[in-house]
Design a protein around this nucleic acid. Structure first.
Lengths: 187, 187
DNA sequence: GTACAATATATCAGGTCTTATATAGACAAC
DNA sequence: GTTGTCTATATAAGACCTGATATATTGTAC
């Protein structure tokens, strides 16, 4: 289970609450793995049962108590073990390509609209990766001083950018090909 | 729910059993959407309840009866509606990048091993897309005569290829960068 | 001729993830 | 002044998906 190991990873930097962890997810690995609080909380509880984490309650008066999670020795070992484990390729899940696959019955203009919309979404995402997302990463390296770690954080962002560039190129080529087609349902 | 619409898509070509549908999935959209039989069967049942499909049992003596599913008018309408619906970008889920992200604590050689392994997997997959997968697609177009549909089937395969090429480039660049690093745990 | 894989069909248990809901203070908008 | 949104914390219901299991025939390997 990858979520478990992502949580171990962040908790190997410092003890945190589920809410803190969610913020780290959103800030740093959101471009290749997301998680909801409603998924993080029960997973943390399970990890305590498994001995990977310990939990301490910090009382607060004005809002719900903070449950601070700390990684155990067993947790660190498990993280190290998993980091060395060879993983297969993760299957893709792209609903948009289902629309394309069965798009034979749509008119040419409708298909073009779909593709142009998708192109715009990927352009936006690419711009975010190259701008604000890269910037947050840089700030995190500066704030923590984790130079070596930061190098690998950057690598994952490079992967996201490479991916987006691939999608952009594909969208552009697909649009060209469809524009070159005859009108209506034939070519 | 995308699975539902993928099933509607295939059933818009011809009536089929769950088992048949699984074969189509594996043959044609496997590179961007997969589904198990254990997921397909209950989904088909639900779709009958929703009025999107009808089911007829064909008795067989030597093996379990065939349950043949046929798309209804309502089902066709729902498919057409969905094909025109703008979709957001699907979030990526790449466990391998979690390993990279938290890989700062691994030795250089261990990281290189991870990346080279991953590179080989993507090379394999790219070769499959360019060879056998493309060939099966061509045969399906020939067998069905669905020229226009085949064009869109091909587009989805192009997307898969583009994606794989992006990954290959990323892996190669990452390997170069890490090789250029000093030994041990620094810089 | 016996073991193993593939074809053909399907269910069930359980794990993962999403969506909706709950509480409560602070702060901004209008 | 009240509506909305943000910070901060968490649970519950249910949808979605994976992995294991079941059965019976046909074909392949040794």
């Amino acid at each position: 289970m990858s979520l478990k190991h992502a949580l171990l990873g962040f908790l190997s930097y410092a003890p945190m609450t589920g809410y803190d962890l969610k913020r780290y997810f959103d800030q740093s690995i959101h471009h290749f793995w997301n998680a909801n609080l409603s998924q993080i909380y029960p997973t943390l509880s399970r990890m305590v049962e498994e001995g990977l984490l310990t939990m301490e309650v910090e009382h607060q008066e004005d809002r719900p108590n903070r449950k601070v999670y700390t990684i155990t020795g067993v947790g660190r070992e498990e993280l190290q073990r998993w980091l060395r484990e060879p993983l297969g390729l993760s299957p893709l899940r792209v609903p948009f390509l289902i629309q394309i696959f069965f798009g034979g019955s749509l008119e040419k203009e409708e298909m073009l609209a779909r593709l142009r919309h998708h192109l715009a979404l990927h352009q936006e995402r690419l711009a975010a990766y190259q701008g604000p997302v890269r910037e947050v990463l840089r700030q995190n390296v500066e704030a923590t001083g984790l130079e070596r770690e930061g190098f690998f954080w950057g690598l994952t962002l490079d992967a996201g950018i490479q991916c987006e560039e691939g999608w952009l190129k594909w969208c552009e080529e697909a649009i060209e090909k469809i524009e070159a087609m005859g009108d209506g349902h034939d070519e």
